[in-house]
Design a protein around this nucleic acid. Structure first.
Length: 437
DNA sequence: TCTGGGGTCCTAGGACCC
DNA sequence: TCTGGGGTCCTAGGACCC
């Protein structure tokens, strides 16, 4: 087997990584100044901590912690639902600010960016550290949130830098200082090395990032796969991961999952959860004009065991009506009335642009066109009144159950309301509609 | 982290073809 | 019929990330 050659820059790169501090919580504090200095937590809608402000972290609140525990360690915490739409607006503005400094900005996640600073010292009349500081200050003053920044020769090293000093840190890792940052860093803290690989490396007495970086290439090639070889280069200051500037335009897969408590073995209820997953996944696929050729269905039992099946679809589609039959088939295969389930999930895969889909001789094109019209109307209603305003009768039992449990259902998006100057479903009193299949 | 939700990429191995 | 070598495509499953 031949390993494909790695592209390594012959010129030293200057890569910046920026990571917003406790992003969701910081956004809330920026919107509500009265919350500054107070422990703020988001994640109310799921019952677990999605983000915690530094005031909350200081009291021992951690990501993923359950909210009843939070109330114990931090009784004065302000707990709010995560409002992704609003955070996305902050995110968009953050990337805009960064692009004023360099066009080479990678939107790595909602709160993280990589920026290629290589060659910018001349136009800024100063060292990279100064440029980084200006970027940091611009984001902080314009958005009212703090960010941590790392600058080094590669993405992996820049990430180590941004994590080194949080919050509001600025860390430069020049080539001659790399070893200082790596010698105390456990391998599992490295970007791309998880618990599994860390355990494997420990067998070879590799415990720190420096020990990993110092291994000779022979060892890496013999024992590890491509991603780890790349990390190894990056740790040694040789940039192999490019800063990807293109905006993400498409998806390889779209998934929707739902966990419910308590676990259930009610067949109707569980199928309804899947139907709802499917509708939401299809809605997203239609928004991106994608059709799925494969449908994956899975159930997670009370004991955290996953069972799944994959079903091929004859023609790429993003219409639930096309997929309910395969969904039902998959579900019947998986469902065991003796088990209790805590989660359902659906993945649309093998996605392709719908524009390129050709009908075959056997497709009923009139029916397909009718379906297309129906879903266009559904999508318009969803956009106007909120997701899931209109849905298939098959997923109705999810709502009935939600009511019994006193669940609020979908949390309305506050910022969107403010921006549009209108409330959504509640105030308009939009009734539930069910499309009769 | 006794466990939420949404993604990506890589590799090995089988099927199939010449 | 057996044998050999080599290529491509596809899929399952692992591992990791925010």
């Amino acid at each position: 087997m031949t390993t494909p050659p790695l592209t390594i820059h012959s010129w030293p790169q200057a890569i910046l990584h920026l990571d917003a501090d406790a992003f969701f919580a910081s956004c809330e504090q920026a919107i509500h100044p009265e919350l500054k200095g107070r422990p703020v937590i988001t994640g109310k809608e799921r019952g677990i901590v999605a983000a915690a402000s530094y005031e909350a972290k200081a009291k021992g609140v951690k990501r993923g912690m359950r909210l009843f525990e939070v109330k114990k360690v931090c009784p004065d915490a302000v707990i709010m639902p995560s409002d992704y739409e609003t955070y996305s607006l902050f995110s968009v503005r953050m990337f805009e600010i960064l692009r004023r400094f360099s066009p080479d900005v990678e939107e790595y996640s909602i709160d993280e960016a990589f920026v290629d600073l290589t060659g910018l010292r001349r136009s800024f009349h100063g060292p990279y550290g100064m440029i980084a500081e200006q970027m940091q200050t611009a984001v902080e003053t314009e958005l009212g949130i703090t960010v941590s920044v790392g600058v080094s020769l590669s993405k992996v090293l820049a990430k180590i830098g941004s994590k080194h000093n949080k919050p509001h840190g600025l860390t430069l890792i020049p080539g001659r200082d790399i070893h200082i940052f790596l010698c105390r860093l456990p391998v599992e803290k490295l970007w791309g090395i998880g618990p599994n690989t860390a355990a494997f490396l420990r067998k070879f007495r590799i415990d720190t990032a420096l020990e990993f970086a110092k291994k000779d290439e022979r060892f890496i090639q013999e024992h590890l796969s491509k991603p780890y070889h790349e990390i190894w280069h990056e740790l040694n200051g040789r940039s192999v991961y490019p800063v990807v500037t293109e905006a993400k335009g498409s998806y390889q897969s779209i998934s929707k999952t739902r966990t419910f408590t308590p676990p259930s073995n009610d067949k109707t209820f569980i199928y309804a959860q899947l139907a709802r997953n499917l509708e939401n996944a299809c809605l997203k696929a239609r928004r991106y004009n994608l059709g799925a050729t494969r449908l994956m269905v899975f159930l997670r039992t009370q004991e955290f065991r996953d069972y799944g099946v994959e079903i091929k679809v004859s023609r790429p589609t993003s219409y639930p009506l096309d997929l309910f039959e395969p969904l039902q088939r998959g579900f019947d295969q998986l469902f065991d009335p003796r088990s209790s389930y805590r989660q359902t999930g659906v993945v649309l895969a093998g996605l392709m642009p719908m524009a390129s889909v050709q009908y075959t001789l056997f497709d009923d094109s009139t029916k397909i066109e009718k379906m297309s019209k129906v879903y266009k109307a559904v999508d318009r209603l969803s956009e106007k009144f909120g997701k899931y305003t209109v849905h298939h009768a098959a997923s109705l039992p999810t709502k009935l159950q939600a009511r019994h449990e006193g669940d609020r259902g979908d949390v309305p998006e506050r910022m969107t309301e403010l921006l549009r100057g209108e409330n959504r479903r509640q105030r308009l009193g939009v009734p539930l509609l069910h499309i009769k299949v």
